[in-house]
Design a binder for these strands. Structure first.
Lengths: 191, 191
DNA sequence: GTAAAAGGAATGAACGTTCATTCCTTTTGA
DNA sequence: TCAAAAGGAATGAACGTTCATTCCTTTTAC
């Protein structure tokens, strides 16, 4: 096994364990076991568990962005851009439930709160498409004139909730249901 | 200090610690210290930590329900009932941020997922006002004909998100902003 | 071409710490 | 005086992390 393979195996094992049952269910020894690697080996690639968790988060973000931007076109009507962006977002998460569950765990942990604070205070560059979309929407008067944070919550809140419920099996999001759900989100933020 | 006082102190200490920094930041020894009680005393009132956590959750639910039902009237238009219910819900959480943060922590833990599964599968009786409201809305054709779970997510998703962001100081929810946010939620679920 | 030597990646047993829980002593209240 | 309640030190399991050692690859020397 090559060097990068080992790193990948560690990251994959951590993703699986944490996504499936949360941080508390992923001791380093278990991550090592699932990655088929010695416990000490993890520390050749990551300084400690916090670093592993944070780097994994960043990797997932970096995988996600290009995919949802692939079909996104800036100079289209706001509504169309919104539907496209959020449809592709839900599709990505449905196709990659481990990624979704991991991001969720991360956001609901002290790591995530800190991260969010940095993003909102502008200390960290995020995926600016969303911000641009909402700002354009406000200035074109097709989106409600509410604080950006609230618009984000109105859009991402339901998306996160329905995706979680689909992955947990509480509801089935087929293409039609995804579409109707995102239309409903749009109804919430549009003027 | 009377017997019930001690129990209350333990519950209060646990609520504070867990709400402020999550389960991992609330070891039994610290709960005991903050409650001004011996570590062993906790076990006279709760069989173990899981029981303490679950009973505290149920207590918070039991405190919440009467408050949001206080001004709720069944035979009013759906829209009015929706606005009243969710406004009172947000107000309660803003007035009781520890309760909100605790419920959030609980819901985002394995306890919470299990709990939610039981509720959705009907194994546990919940606050049926919400279900009745949405079902009435659908049958009166004023609410979108979507699965109940999705309607819940469309309504509770944003509410949870904005409340969290208010409590974390990312936005300020004054009365006007609460009202506009809940109107936006209504726009999302109404036909 | 081959054997010896070096380098460094990988290992997992061992360590110190933290935690939930238990157990035994002390205090309380009737 | 005694049973119940409270206290907190003791316990052992679980955890993240370290480090002496092994193992494997690459380099060196002839």
């Amino acid at each position: 096994m090559s060097k990068t393979d080992k790193r990948e195996e560690i990251v994959r094992a951590a993703l699986e364990l944490i996504a499936e049952n949360g941080f508390h269910a992923a001791p380093m020894a278990l991550i090592a076991e699932r990655a088929k690697v010695g416990a000490g080996t993890i520390y050749r690639y990551f300084a400690n568990k916090d670093v592993l968790i944070s780097e994994l988060y960043q990797e997932l973000e970096q995988r996600l962005y290009p995919v949802i931007l692939e079909n996104y076109v800036e100079n289209k009507p706001i509504r169309e851009r919104f539907l496209r962006l959020f449809t592709d977002l839900i599709r990505y998460f449905i196709a990659n439930p481990l990624d979704f569950r991991y991001l969720e765990q991360f956001h609901n942990s002290p790591y995530g709160t800190e991260y969010r604070r940095d993003k909102i205070l502008g200390k960290r560059e995020g995926c600016d498409v969303f911000r641009n979309l909402f700002e354009d929407g406000i200035s074109q008067q097709v989106v409600k004139d509410l604080p950006l944070v609230i618009l984000f919550d109105l859009a991402f809140g339901p998306i996160q909730a329905v995706t979680r419920d689909h992955i947990l099996g509480f509801v089935t999001l087929d293409e039609a249901m995804v579409s109707r759900t995102i239309e409903a989100c749009w109804d919430g933020i549009k003027r």
